Amino acid sequence: MGYWIWMIIVSLIAGIIFGPLARLVLPGKQNISLGWTILGGGIGAFIGGLIAYFLGVKDTPGPDWIQYLIQVVCAAIVIAIISARNGKAKTA
């Protein structure tokens, strides 16, 4: 149980890095705030961490570059969803 709580905390902190990285990967302009960027990055980092954990990527020695790549891709997907949802809310 402690591992999962630690993973949530680390994922939210990683959102500070992975959120803006994900926005750089996405084409066009995302109409979301810095808070949503960090939260989306944290959610994506958590989901990406889970995927890497279940794929066994996390058990490699040294920096887990594949895990980080998976987390950034997941963060980009989450931020794209948030951005699309915010765009629809503003046009409605």
Rank of each mutant, 00 (worst) to 15 (best):
F54H: 14
G56Y: 15
A45Q: 01
G15E: 04
V10T: 14
V10A: 12
S83L: 02
Q71Y: 02
F54E: 12
G2F: 10
V57S: 11
I47T: 02
W65L: 11
V72Q: 00
F18T: 07
M7C: 08
L34Y: 13
G28D: 01
L12M: 14
L21D: 03
I47R: 00
G62M: 05
L12E: 01
M1I: 08
P20G: 03
Y3E: 15
A22M: 07
Y53W: 15
A52V: 02
A84M: 13
W6A: 13
I82H: 07
T60E: 14
F54I: 10
I66V: 14
Y68M: 09
S33M: 09
I8P: 03
P63S: 08
W36V: 08
A76E: 02
I8N: 05
P63H: 10
C74W: 01
Q67N: 12
R85G: 15
Q71C: 12
I38C: 06
V72F: 00
I66F: 09
Y3F: 13
S11M: 06
Q30A: 08
N86S: 14
S33E: 12
I9Y: 06
L50E: 09
L21R: 02
I79A: 01
G19P: 05
L12Y: 06
C74I: 03
G42N: 03
V10H: 10
I32Y: 03
W6H: 10
Y53D: 12
R85P: 02
G87Y: 08
I79Q: 04
L55I: 13
L69K: 04
A80T: 04
L55V: 13
G2A: 14
G87F: 06
G15L: 04
K29Y: 06
K29P: 02
S83F: 00
F18W: 05
D59A: 14
K88N: 11
I17P: 00
P61D: 09
G40V: 03
W4H: 11
Y3R: 15
V25L: 15
G44Q: 00
V72M: 06
G56F: 14
C74Q: 01
A75P: 07
L39A: 14
R85Q: 14
V57Y: 13
A80S: 12
L34Q: 11
P63R: 09
L55C: 12
P27R: 05
A89W: 12
P61W: 02
W36M: 12
N31I: 03
I79M: 08
V72A: 05
W6V: 05
W36Y: 09
I9D: 03
G42T: 04
I16M: 09
I17G: 07
M7R: 12
D64M: 10
N86W: 04
C74L: 07
V25Y: 11
I8V: 15
A92K: 12
G49M: 08
K58I: 14
I9K: 05
I82Q: 05
K58S: 15
K90C: 00
C74D: 02
